[in-house]
């Protein structure tokens, strides 16, 4: 049975099956002629190509915005420029990691800004994409991702993620999401993660301006390094999943920035060795 909209877990294969069915139908060329038909055909090809990556963006109606139905721009450019597509590609893959791996990887990569992510050993994580939560002012807020984790004793911990790419985190949005998380999960241990959207010194300013009790920052470059570290010695399927996430981050230039302090010095002594010889 299909779960409630906005909630997906890796134990919910029916959603994936439904997506594959939809993708097969969608991937057929449009019957319309002209540029729009060609555009749709290209879009469909790309969607089919990236169907797994864009699963959650599609399920939550985010791809329409990313592709721009009336635009004649290259849809690949639009996908690459979409913050929601990036969210889907990164966290859509992370949800297939073993729960403890995903939890440890993310929580260890975070930098505490105020409070911290509660110490927790999950046995299962329910991962929601763009859930609609009731806000204090009667409106709705929509964190990009919410993880609801349960431990062996039945305890619950909830982490909300607000992703930013090419835009800045704002204390106001984080405050609203924090209050909505508190209202939705009053008995759970809670934390809010600001992913991207704040540089090394802007994180401090954010922590001072935001009232969330447990606010942590996660820089894309730090997440990338954590993923690379986790690949070492990992099982093949974990390496594949992480490799895909790294590809998505690299595609958007979200790698660690390097500065002159790490410029290598190659002063070596002794004669050079040639590894090549003619046959």
């Amino acid at each position: 049975m299909r779960r409630a909209r906005g909630i997906a877990t890796r134990r919910n294969p029916s959603a994936v099956a439904m997506w594959h069915h939809a993708a097969r139908n969608t991937a057929r060329p449009s019957i319309e002629g002209g540029k729009r038909g060609a555009l749709q055909q290209r879009c469909c090809s790309i969607i089919a190509l990236h169907e797994a990556d864009l699963l959650h963006a599609h399920l939550h109606g985010k791809l329409g915005r990313a592709l721009g139905a009336e635009s004649e721009d290259d849809p690949r450019v639009r996908i690459r420029a979409s913050e929601d597509a990036l969210t889907a590609m990164v966290f859509g893959r992370l949800r297939y990691l073993p729960d403890t791996v995903a939890w440890t990887l993310i929580t260890h990569a975070c930098t505490p800004l105020r409070g911290a992510i509660p110490a927790f050993v999950p046995v299962e994580i329910e991962m929601q994409f763009w859930p609609q939560l009731a806000a204090d002012d009667g409106g709705r807020v929509e964190p990009d991702v919410v993880w609801r984790a349960v431990d062996a004793a039945g305890g619950v911990a909830v982490i909300g993620f607000e992703m930013k790419w090419r835009t800045k985190q704002t204390a106001g949005q984080l405050d609203r999401e924090w209050r909505a998380l508190r209202r939705a999960y009053p008995d759970a241990a809670r934390a809010l993660v600001a992913v991207g959207g704040a540089d090394f010194d802007e994180m401090d300013a954010l922590s001072r301006a935001c009232a969330a009790e447990n606010l942590v920052g996660l820089r894309w470059s730090v997440l990338r390094e954590a993923l690379r570290d986790r690949m070492i010695g990992a099982e093949p399927q974990v390496r594949r999943l992480i490799s895909d996430v790294l590809c998505a981050l690299d595609d958007r230039g979200l790698r660690d920035m390097r500065f002159f302090e790490t410029l290598p010095s190659w002063r070596t002594a002794g004669p050079p060795r040639l590894d090549w010889r003619p046959a």
């Binding site: 920035m257 390097r258 500065f259 002159f260 790490t262 410029l263 290598p264 190659w266």
Partner: peptide
Amino acid sequence: RLVHAYQRRLLDL
């Protein structure tokens, strides 16, 4: 190799 490493850092800066 050094020029590549330098230019990578320069572009990041």
